[in-house]
Deep mutational scan, measured.
Amino acid sequence: PEEVRRLVEELYRKGVSPEQVKKILKKQGIDEREIEKVLRRIG
């Protein structure tokens, strides 16, 4: 979803590592598979 992409990109631009991005967003209840999809697209 758009909102997940925005959150991931925001953290990524701040220099947060992909592993940390995953941890942070998982705590917020976001599906890990969604996060990984976005990270793959960015990375």
Rank of each mutant, 00 (worst) to 15 (best):
E32I: 06
K27Q: 11
E19H: 13
R6W: 08
K23D: 10
P18N: 08
V21Q: 01
E19F: 12
K26W: 04
V38Y: 05
I42T: 04
K22S: 05
E10K: 07
K27V: 07
L25S: 00
E19C: 06
I24E: 06
Q28L: 12
P1N: 13
G15V: 02
E34T: 13
G15N: 05
E19A: 12
K27G: 10
K26M: 14
Q20I: 09
R40K: 15
E34A: 05
I35T: 04
P1Q: 11
D31F: 02
R41L: 15
Q28P: 01
L39I: 11
R5L: 13
R13T: 07
V38H: 08
V21D: 00
S17P: 13
E32S: 06
I30F: 14
I30W: 14
E3Q: 07
P1Y: 14
G43F: 15
E9G: 04
G15F: 04
G15E: 03
P1R: 10
R40L: 15
Q28W: 07
K27W: 06
G29W: 02
E2C: 02
K26Q: 09
V16Q: 07
Y12A: 06
I30S: 01
K27F: 07
D31P: 13
P1L: 10
G43M: 14
L7W: 06
E34W: 04
K23Q: 13
R5M: 13
R33Y: 07
R41Y: 15
K23V: 11
I30P: 00
L11N: 01
Q28S: 10
G43T: 13
I42L: 15
R41N: 15
R41V: 15
R40M: 13
V16K: 12
P1D: 13
R40G: 13
V21W: 03
L39E: 01
V38T: 04
G43K: 13
V38P: 00
L39F: 03
E19D: 12
L7S: 03
V21F: 03
L11H: 15
V38C: 06
I30N: 01
V4Q: 02
V4S: 02
V16H: 09
G29N: 06
V21A: 04
L11F: 05
L25R: 00
P1C: 03
